[in-house]
Design a protein around this nucleic acid. Structure first.
Lengths: 151, 151
DNA sequence: GCTTACGGCCGAACACTATTCGCTGCGGAT
DNA sequence: ATCCGCAGCGAATAGTGTTCGGCCGTAAGC
């Protein structure tokens, strides 16, 4: 994981579809060298895949929210079950098991506030292991991709 | 945004680097047709880009957390300023402006618990607009990519 | 009901790209 | 000093992206 690897990772995070030649030229190495490095990054598990970034609005998801959920009892079985159930729902973007008062943070995206409300009522309230939940609607967000190693 | 477009989006979310020919074959259309569709999806802003998915551990980020922050006053200027300041930090993966008791949810990733602690002390406590904050360490997480339109 | 114009898809052609593989040069070890 | 091994390189080949003219199905107009 030297400087060249880091640069490749940085470039492919910004644009995963640029040609290997363009990538090689930016980094000042031969295309074959670049290709071999990328292959090794794959093999080592550093690069886990390539994904298109899609506008949520185009998929009819104009409302995003975080839902904090408290479970009872917070046993392994209950946590794993809840996690799997949430993850299987199409409205769910991500599930986080966290430390603190709440046990879960569920990132959801839906067409509207109405559908969010229905989601909460139908998918959370009805689950018996859910003690309480609190939803935080996202007004604005900014995400980025990790560029450089820390430390 | 017909069925073919949805299928293209779904496929490119799962693997953004598959060849156009392979994509076309999966969907049962000619490569030229497929390419034209992808071009239009770009132009319409549906596809916003392509990004490599990198293992955080490879970038020395073994600890992730959400930090909820309350600001005072929650004016536009303060919010925008805080958002920009957080977003500029390399430890920050995402910034969410949310409704509720807290004003912000900041997603961070760091090498260790020590560096997380330092981050909180050095980057949040010292900011005068920060009234309070609470950090939720992420024990486990699962993310996915939106596959189909809702509604 | 017939004609016509339009939009989307197709398939072949061409330029460009990925991918392989043997060669070369450098650095460390003996 | 010599050898060994690794990493990068460049040419060759197979495969890919991209363009473009033509075709067909649809829908509107007369």
């Amino acid at each position: 994981m030297d400087e060249l690897d880091s640069a490749i990772v940085r470039e492919l995070q910004q644009d995963a579809r640029q040609t290997n030649r363009a990538l090689a030229q930016k980094l000042g190495v031969a295309p074959s060298t670049c290709l071999e490095r990328v292959r090794l990054l794959h093999q080592r598990g550093v690069i886990r895949g390539y994904h298109a970034d899609i506008d949520p609005a185009a998929l009819n998801r104009r409302v995003e929210a975080f839902v904090s959920v408290q479970l009872r009892p917070p046993s392994r079985q209950v946590i794993e079950g809840f996690k799997a159930a949430m993850f299987a729902l199409p409205e769910v973007l991500a599930v986080y098991v966290v430390a603190g008062e709440q046990d879960f943070l569920v990132h959801v995206s839906l067409p509207s506030l109405d559908t969010l409300h229905s989601f909460l009522i139908d998918r959370l309230t009805e689950r018996r292991e859910v003690v309480s939940f609190r939803s935080q609607i996202i007004y604005d967000s900014a995400r980025k991709h990790v560029t450089a190693p820390l430390g």
